[in-house]
Simulated scan of single mutants.
Amino acid sequence: MGSKNKLKRFKENETFKNVIQPVRDEVSAGLFSLRGKWNTHFKNENPIVLELGCGKGEYTVGLSRAYPDKNFIGIDIKGARFWRGAKTALEENLENAAFLRSQIELIDLLFAENEVAEIWITFPDPQIKYKRTKHRMTNSDFLDKYRKILRPGGLVHLKTDSEFMHGYTLGLLQGLGLTVNYANHDVYKNEGSPREVLGIQTFYERQYLEKGKPITYIQFKFG
């Protein structure tokens, strides 16, 4: 994407009512005004569902279409990328979809304890090298942050093309004694996956499928 296009999208994001772009220092200092008060943004008390590393926001938009009784927030630091999802949500008057520009590691400073009902992690970078373990979005540190913000029984969904990420996460969950509700090594060949796993495809997912890569899925919760 050219720099002019990026600048244009950054400018448009500033005008979108469904895009929130807090200052990192403000969030780090515990001063983010919507933490614990996301219902004031959506103007209702419906469950909140997050898409972490949302990219173009396909899941945020797709889920908000399918579940008007829930609120969805796509989170990514790359605002020029989620611009597409934010614009689509506005064009379709999806009042239950929002986009938050921030780093995922600040998640527990962006949402309060028990404020979130579900988390979707869609096609994260698997960070295969050992020295990149701290950046894997299902490592133990990130899991602790998710546990803090999820309500009791809240679900986490991991959809990825990476067999490494799938296996790493399953092993970690089992080692921690967490409840794995469902796991599938190839959702398009093996039956049983939830309809939103099959019914929504991201830009990258379509590329992976064209190359014949299997798509994996795990659904788990904290005990």
Results as ranks from 00 to 15, higher is better:
212 G>H: 00
185 H>E: 15
11 K>D: 14
31 L>S: 14
45 E>F: 10
138 T>Q: 06
144 D>G: 12
219 Q>V: 14
96 N>P: 05
106 L>G: 05
142 F>Q: 04
73 I>M: 02
103 Q>S: 11
212 G>Q: 00
113 E>Y: 10
48 I>T: 04
65 R>S: 09
28 S>Y: 15
138 T>L: 13
49 V>F: 01
102 S>G: 04
165 M>D: 06
36 G>R: 00
174 Q>Y: 13
15 T>H: 05
45 E>M: 10
80 A>I: 12
125 D>S: 08
42 F>D: 03
86 A>P: 04
5 N>H: 12
96 N>Y: 03
20 I>Y: 07
25 D>Q: 07
10 F>Q: 09
19 V>H: 03
147 R>T: 15
41 H>W: 15
94 L>F: 05
13 N>D: 08
35 R>Y: 09
126 P>T: 04
93 N>M: 13
2 G>K: 01
169 T>S: 06
146 Y>N: 06
113 E>G: 12
160 T>Y: 00
122 T>Q: 11
219 Q>H: 08
100 L>P: 00
10 F>P: 04
136 R>N: 04
176 L>A: 12
23 V>H: 04
169 T>G: 02
83 W>Y: 11
83 W>E: 01
209 L>M: 10
122 T>P: 09
59 Y>H: 06
38 W>T: 03
146 Y>H: 05
15 T>G: 05
142 F>H: 04
215 I>Y: 00
14 E>A: 09
204 Y>P: 00
18 N>T: 07
29 A>F: 12
188 Y>F: 10
78 K>I: 11
182 Y>G: 04
136 R>I: 14
71 N>G: 05
190 N>A: 14
198 L>T: 07
188 Y>R: 07
12 E>M: 11
45 E>G: 08
200 I>H: 01
76 D>T: 11
14 E>H: 04
145 K>H: 04
71 N>E: 10
207 Q>A: 15
178 L>I: 08
74 G>S: 06
57 G>S: 08
110 L>N: 00
223 G>Y: 13
199 G>N: 08
77 I>G: 06
85 G>M: 03
65 R>L: 13
15 T>E: 13
139 N>T: 06
195 R>N: 15
169 T>I: 08
54 C>V: 10
124 P>F: 10
164 F>R: 06
111 F>T: 02
80 A>Y: 10
4 K>A: 15
